[in-house]
Write a protein that binds this DNA or RNA. Structure first.
Length: 467
RNA sequence: UCCCGGAUAGCUCAAUCGGUAGAGCGAGCGGCUGUUAACCGCUAGGUUCUAGGUUCGAGUCCUAGUCCGGGAGCCA
């Protein structure tokens, strides 16, 4: 008898007929033959495919146990691997013993053998990873995460860390920070002093959750060379769309001695590497997405790999839109933000591939982006991909102290608040650049999934932080 | 936050003009079968999102609210 548990993935790939093996997992479905045996489809999450278990009625305890083998139940099986006469699998496991570890009442278990809407599955986020789709998403998300680390580690980047949030009050180990978007300043108007004295707060000043690790990334990038952050990021915007989360994961590399062209080249190589890794390491899951979620996703990804991302300046983009010969819901004019309809036209219809729009008007972008000599634009870049839209935003950073201070003035920021950011320019300033990649948007591109709430295990959106 | 649309069985949905609440899937039971989205038969399963209102009568019409989806803005 095999004492060590094998994964279903390894058995389906390498399992030899005649070998004794031990598996455990969750029942997807059971089919009985009254001629004296039952078929069980077992899944352990190691791969998309199930292992077919054949249980003979002569197996010890069969009569009593087989009734408890229902969809969702957990099982441990010991038996012998054999070639399968069926056409849908190479091998199957003939059980010599099987134990029901945990039952799943079929009258109550929410997951049925047939498909469920993603909206329904969001309500049972604790069970949805037991479905084909969410198991595949979990594996691809893991693959992408590893691919990201490998990409930067192979290039000598240092990984810098970032924080975490929870609404659960059952972690047990003491007082927790309250996070709120309630207007405390206004609530304070009903108090005698009519002010919130953050001096008495934990940090002695008003504190928030991070919306980006970029500025801190610059600190290390101008000390130890290229770095990247990869962690959760929080935005309290009241955004209710299939592309926004209040808590999402972002990758932010920051590179000294990089200009915008270097930045764009790295971003393109980065995205293509992630796609390549997902296709080669999660082939079975990717085939599933192409078959069941979006029949164009593999062709789209292959097309992306085979073409260079088109560089288009903001000014060129505006010209293209103005000469497109069609009406826009939002008028196109230099100096205005590109609207979603404009971005979609450019990447989905005009170029039909990912594009990098660069050198935006300075009035549209934050203070830290490097100003061009034309006095009108900054060295910003957005990577736009079909269907998903903006997947990367980045820029070359302004390394000239005087220009930076001027820009802070234009943006009504107090340079004293950013004294340390200024110091990076006062002492040994260097040209540098970086960008941010939204992990979940990358997953939308890879999987063909429509809603960003379905590519993160536990989505946080306005009015929703369950599980 | 704004503009649309929606909420009916465990799930996905139907219900004509305001007139007895239906189907498929799932579940239970039985049959059949080296099966594999199995198949065939029978049975059970409903506070029609909530609170008001109109009406002889409301799933259906009106008002308010809650939640969900799509689009927009913000962005990654």
């Amino acid at each position: 008898m095999a004492a060590t548990r094998s994964t279903i993935k390894s058995l389906l790939r390498d399992g030899q007929p005649g070998s004794d093996v031990h598996v455990a997992g969750w029942v997807r479905t059971r089919r009985d033959s009254k001629q004296g045996f039952s078929f069980i489809e077992l899944n352990d999450g190691s791969c998309m495919a199930n292992l077919q278990i054949v249980v003979d009625a002569a197996t010890p305890g069969y009569e009593d146990a087989i009734r408890r083998v229902t969809t969702g139940a957990s099982l441990r099986i010991v038996g012998t691997l054999r070639e399968s006469p069926g056409s849908k699998q190479r091998v199957e496991l003939h059980a010599s013993t099987f134990d029901v570890l945990g039952e799943a009442d079929p009258a109550k278990y929410p997951l049925q053998k047939k498909g469920h809407s993603f909206e329904f599955l969001r309500e049972i986020a604790h069970l949805r990873p037991r479905t084909n789709t969410f198991g595949a998403i979990a594996r691809v998300r893991n693959c992408v995460s590893y691919s990201i680390h490998r990409f930067f580690q192979q290039r000598g980047f240092l990984y810098i860390h970032t924080p975490i949030i929870t609404t659960s009050d059952c972690e047990g180990a003491g007082e927790m920070f309250q996070v709120t978007t309630l207007p405390l300043d206004r609530l304070a108007e009903g108090t005698p002093t009519k002010t919130v004295d953050y001096g008495h707060d934990f940090f002695g000043k008003r504190a928030s959750l991070t919306v980006s690790g970029q500025l801190e990334g610059e600190i290390y990038a101008t000390a130890v060379g290229p770095v990247y952050t990869f962690g959760p990021t929080f935005r309290a915007e009241n955004s209710n769309t299939p592309r926004h989360l209040a808590e999402f994961w972002m990758v932010e590399p920051e590179m000294p001695f990089f200009d915008l062209d270097d930045n764009m080249a790295l971003a393109e190589e980065f995205i293509k590497t992630i796609i390549q890794d997902a296709l080669s390491e999660c082939a079975e899951d990717m085939a599933f997405f192409n078959e069941r979620i979006d029949k164009t996703v593999l062709a789209t990804l292959t097309h992306i790999l085979e073409h260079e991302f088109k560089r288009v300046s903001y000014t060129e983009a505006v010209d293209i839109l103005l000469s497109a010969g069609r009406d826009w819901e939002y008028p196109v004019a230099w100096g205005h933000n590109l609207q979603a309809e404009h971005e979609r036209f450019l990447t989905e219809q005009h170029f039909q591939q990912p594009i990098i729009v660069h050198d935006y008007p300075r009035t549209l972008k934050p203070f830290y982006m490097k100003c061009n000599d034309d006095g009108q634009t900054v060295r910003a870049m957005d990577v736009l991909v079909p269907r998903v839209g903006e997947i990367i935003g980045g820029s070359q950073r302004e390394e000239r102290l005087d220009v930076l201070l001027t820009r802070m003035g234009e943006c009504n920021l107090d340079p004293a608040e950013y004294w340390w950011y200024g110091d990076l320019r006062r002492y040994g300033t260097v040209p540098h650049a970086g960008f941010g990649l939204g992990l979940e948007r990358m997953l939308l591109l890879l999987t063909g999934m429509q809603n960003i709430r379905d590519v993160i295990p536990f989505p946080r959106t306005p009015r929703n932080a369950d599980f």
